[in-house]
Amino acid sequence: MEFEPKIVAFLCNWCTYTGADLAGVSRLKSPANIRVIRTMCSGRVDPTFVMKAFDLGADGVLIGGCHPGDCHYAEGNYKTLRRAHMLKKIMRKYGIDEKRLRLEWISAAEGDKFQEVTTTFTETIRSLGPLDWRKRIGKGDRTEHTVAV
């Protein structure tokens, strides 16, 4: 069976979520691989959410926020920017391709950008293949006694 990426998207209520809505009412087709979770600000996306998404089976995580300067809580998206960089650094160490996390600024007027981002991100994840984190770290949990050298 062909691999269909599971992507969790945390979208800011004031911009990207509304942008996604606009994409919808404008009948712009975007992939069904995206599962949207609305947050009040991209700054609400705790690093725990991202880790938990990967642990629970997400193949990719998208965070959508207001453009720099436009965050309704002044600084939330800058904090998100730094978090995303830190998270990517951590993900590399865990052995998770950092491309599995994507941060994008998409305003309420950018339905077309929402379509473009979700489409290209889905393709990126499709080419990376399934993450399947639990299976990945669980298998061979108690390996053979001998060591292949």
């Binding site: 690093p47 725990t48 880790m51 920017l81 960089h85 830190m86 998270l87 650094k89 951590i90």
Partner: peptide, 29 residues
């Protein structure tokens, strides 16, 4: 707090003094 490291990622992201992606990387590196 579920994950101590995630909490630390969050705490450090609040205190790094930059809004520029390249500079953020430089500091975090």
């Amino acid at each position: 707090v579920v994950d101590q490291g995630a909490k630390m990622v969050s705490a450090l992201s609040s205190v790094v003094d930059s809004q520029d992606p390249n500079e953020i990387d430089e500091i975090l590196n």
